[in-house]
Computed example of a mutant assay.
Amino acid sequence: MNGKIKNIVVLFLAAISIVVLAGCGNSSNEKTVKIGITGSDNRVWNAVAKKVKKDGIKIKLVEFSDYNQPNTALDQGETDLNAFQTVYFMDNWNKTHHTHIVSIGQTDIAPMALYSKKLKSLSELKDGDKIAIPNDPTNEGRALDLLVSANLITLKKAALPTVKDIKTNPKHLKISQLDAAQTARSLNDEAAAVVNSGVASDAKLDPKTAIYTEKVTAKSKPYVNVISANEKDKNNPTYKKIVKAYQSDDIAKLTKKLYGNFQVPAWNYKILQ
């Protein structure tokens, strides 16, 4: 083999190697899926990310500081999915903002709770005490329903109650409305506050110290947390794999281990079926 032919053969083999390597590099076709969340406790989602990695799916969590940002980011295509909201919140958001965001799968239900740094029980609430609740429509209504179930107030009939719908308030409680993320911080000033589970977790509040916790019943279905997508993506096979990975026995066991009865897997929780 003369030098010229040898050089051609070498170049040919090198070209084949490059093609083969390129093919190997693309064989996994890893897909990155951005998921908007609130709060910084990512332990369950980190476990889900490990499960779907074998399917060539890379989950990238995008943290938001309040409940107004994740749906805006999803609607504008800045994220692919989000997992922070209840069915009720999502439906209300769509009506208010004319968006088309849908649920593609249930995750869990996280009861709201009434916390206090000054009181150890409901019976210690005094006449005129101040209580903070979230100010967004769905969480405000949910918080008021919690106060009803705690026998602190009664409400007029309303699909989505506000403080204006309070019918009776025997203790003359002064109920203030704050951004949900601020409710835990208000405990230094208020007698008590109704706090969402994720906000309580970020604030290092122990659910066991809550002076009252929301009851989970069949009526709690609107408050089940979901994985949401834009309607056009509801049948995306990659997103369905993420939902399937989340709704698995090992993730249910992990949720139970981490949160006990304060964050319950909704997809197999009989009372919600």
Rank of each mutant, 00 (worst) to 15 (best):
A47R: 05
G198C: 00
N92S: 14
V33L: 03
N92T: 14
N94C: 09
L122N: 11
A83G: 00
G77C: 13
D108V: 10
D108W: 06
K117C: 04
S176Y: 09
Y115D: 12
D41S: 09
T38E: 09
K270Q: 15
P161C: 07
W267Y: 00
K126G: 15
T86Q: 02
H172C: 06
M112H: 06
A47D: 03
D129H: 10
D145A: 06
G198S: 09
E214T: 07
R185V: 10
N94H: 14
Q273C: 09
A180L: 11
K270Y: 10
V9S: 14
K174P: 05
Q85L: 04
Q69I: 13
A132W: 11
K164R: 11
L144T: 02
K240A: 14
D41K: 03
A83D: 05
G260Y: 14
I18D: 07
I104A: 02
K253W: 08
D145Q: 12
T107K: 03
K157N: 10
V226H: 13
K256H: 12
Y212V: 08
L146Y: 01
N29P: 01
K58H: 11
K219S: 08
I59L: 13
K164C: 12
E124D: 14
S186C: 04
T32M: 06
E231H: 12
L146C: 07
S248H: 11
S149Q: 12
V148S: 02
I59E: 04
L81A: 06
I242S: 00
K234D: 08
P265A: 05
L13A: 14
I18A: 04
S17H: 00
I5F: 12
K257S: 13
T107Y: 04
T32A: 02
N236K: 05
V216L: 05
R185S: 15
N42C: 12
L61G: 05
I101Q: 00
L119S: 09
N151W: 05
Q182E: 12
V87E: 08
W267C: 00
D75I: 04
T154R: 09
K208R: 10
K240Y: 09
Q76H: 13
N26R: 12
I18G: 02
N26A: 13
K240L: 14
A218M: 06
I153G: 03
V20E: 10
S28M: 15
N82K: 13
K234A: 05
T32N: 07
A49E: 00
A210Y: 01
I104L: 02
S197A: 14
Y223I: 08
L187Y: 12
V20N: 09
D41T: 08
N235W: 07
N82H: 11
K208N: 13
D108K: 00
G105N: 04
I101F: 06
P170S: 10
Q106T: 10
S40W: 04
D66G: 11
S186A: 14
N46Q: 14
T96C: 08
G25D: 01
D202W: 03
S65V: 04
A180F: 07
I35A: 06
K130C: 11
K130E: 14
S121D: 02
Y246R: 08
A266L: 02
A14Q: 01
D202Y: 01
